[in-house]
C-alpha cells in the first residue's frame, strides 16, 4: 500500500483554520477557553515541531548510545511530571520513581523489540524512541493516578491504616489494601479502553501505520502487541513506584511522613 502524500505547510495552516469553529463557539456562549486554547495549540505545535527535528536527526544518525540517552531523557521528563502531579517530594522520591519507570518501561521495551518485533537492532531509533515514548506516555498517567490514589487514601483513611496496624498487621500487611485499591484505580481505565478498542475508535498507532502505508494486517498486529506491552509496562511501573516510594515514605514506627509530601 502507498503512503499518504505529505501535507504542505499551507495546507497545514488551513488546518488551523478549523479552529475558527471552536473559537466562534467560545465567543458566542462565553466559554472563556480562547486564551487557554491558544497556549495549548502553541505548545502542541512547538513541541511537536521540535520533536520532529529531533527525530529527523535521531533517525539519520541512528546511534545506539544517542537513542538510549533520549529514552533516558524521556524517563526523566516522565519522572518530573509524575512527581509534580502526585505531590511527592523531589529530593526524597526521585530515585525510586526513576527506577520504577526505568525497569517497567525498559524491560517491556526490550521485550517488545527483541521478542515481538524481533528486529536485528533493538536499539534502532524507530523502535527504541517511538515505542519507548508510547510506553512511557501511557505509564505516566497511570502512575500519577496510582501514586496519588495510594498516598491520598492513606492520609484520608489514616484511622483505617492505624486500626489495621493496631490489629497486629505488619506495615506491609496494613498497606496491602491501599495498594490493591491504588492498582485498581490505575489499571481499570486502561482495561476499559482495551475492551472497546476498534469498536469506537481506531487506536492512534494503528491509524498512523495505515496512513504510513502499512497493511491493516501488520497495523493490527502492532496495535495488539503495543496494547499488551503498555498494559504490562503500566502494571510494572505503577506497582514498583508504589512499592519503592513506600519504603521511604514511612518512618520506622510505620507512620506516614507528611513532610515528604507537598501540599
Amino acid at each position: 500500500m502507498e503512503a499518504v502524500p505529505d501535507i504542505t505547510i499551507w495546507r497545514l495552516l488551513a488546518g488551523f483554520g478549523l479552529l475558527v469553529i471552536p473559537v466562534a463557539l467560545s465567543l458566542f456562549v462565553k466559554l472563556g477557553i480562547i486564551r487557554q486554547l491558544a497556549i495549548a495549540t502553541g505548545r502542541m505545535t512547538g513541541q511537536l515541531f521540535l520533536m520532529s527535528i529531533l527525530l529527523i536527526y535521531l533517525f539519520r544518525w541512528d546511534n545506539t548510545l544517542l537513542n538510549a540517552a533520549w529514552v533516558i531523557m524521556m524517563i526523566l521528563f516522565a519522572c518530573f511530571s509524575a512527581m509534580i502531579n502526585s505531590k511527592l517530594s523531589f529530593r526524597k522520591f526521585f530515585g525510586p520513581v526513576f527506577l520504577s519507570y526505568f525497569i517497567g518501561a525498559g524491560f517491556v521495551l526490550l521485550f517488545f523489540n527483541r521478542v515481538i518485533v524481533n528486529h536485528e537492532n533493538i536499539f534502532t531509533a524507530r523502535l527504541l524512541v517511538v515505542i519507548g515514548g508510547m510506553l512511557l506516555g501511557n505509564s505516566l498517567n497511570s502512575t500519577i493516578i496510582g501514586i496519588s490514589h495510594y498516598y491520598e487514601s492513606i492520609r484520608k483513611e489514616k484511622r483505617r491504616y492505624l486500626y489495621l496496624l493496631s490489629l497486629g498487621a505488619t506495615q506491609n500487611e496494613a498497606l496491602l489494601p491501599f495498594f490493591r485499591d491504588a492498582m485498581l484505580a490505575a489499571l481499570k481505565p486502561f482495561m476499559a479502553g482495551m475492551a472497546t478498542m476498534g469498536l469506537v475508535s481506531l487506536p492512534g498507532m494503528m491509524t498512523g501505520q495505515i496512513l504510513g502505508g502499512a497493511s491493516p494486517e501488520t497495523a493490527i498486529k502492532y496495535q495488539i502487541a503495543i496494547v499488551l506491552a503498555i498494559f504490562t509496562a503500566i502494571t510494572v511501573s505503577v506497582s514498583l513506584s508504589i512499592f519503592m516510594t513506600s519504603r521511604k515514605a514511612f518512618n520506622p514506627y510505620g507512620v506516614l511522613r507528611n513532610d515528604y509530601f507537598k501540599n
Binding site: 486500626y163 500487611e173 489494601p177
Partner: peptide
Amino acid sequence: YVSQEMQIGRGNTERFIKEVFSYKN
C-alpha cells in the same frame, strides 16, 4: 485501638476478619 468514625475498608465483613487473622502476628 478503636476510634470514632471508624474506617475499616471495603469488601465482605467476614473476609475482613479472616484477613486480620491471617496476619503473621
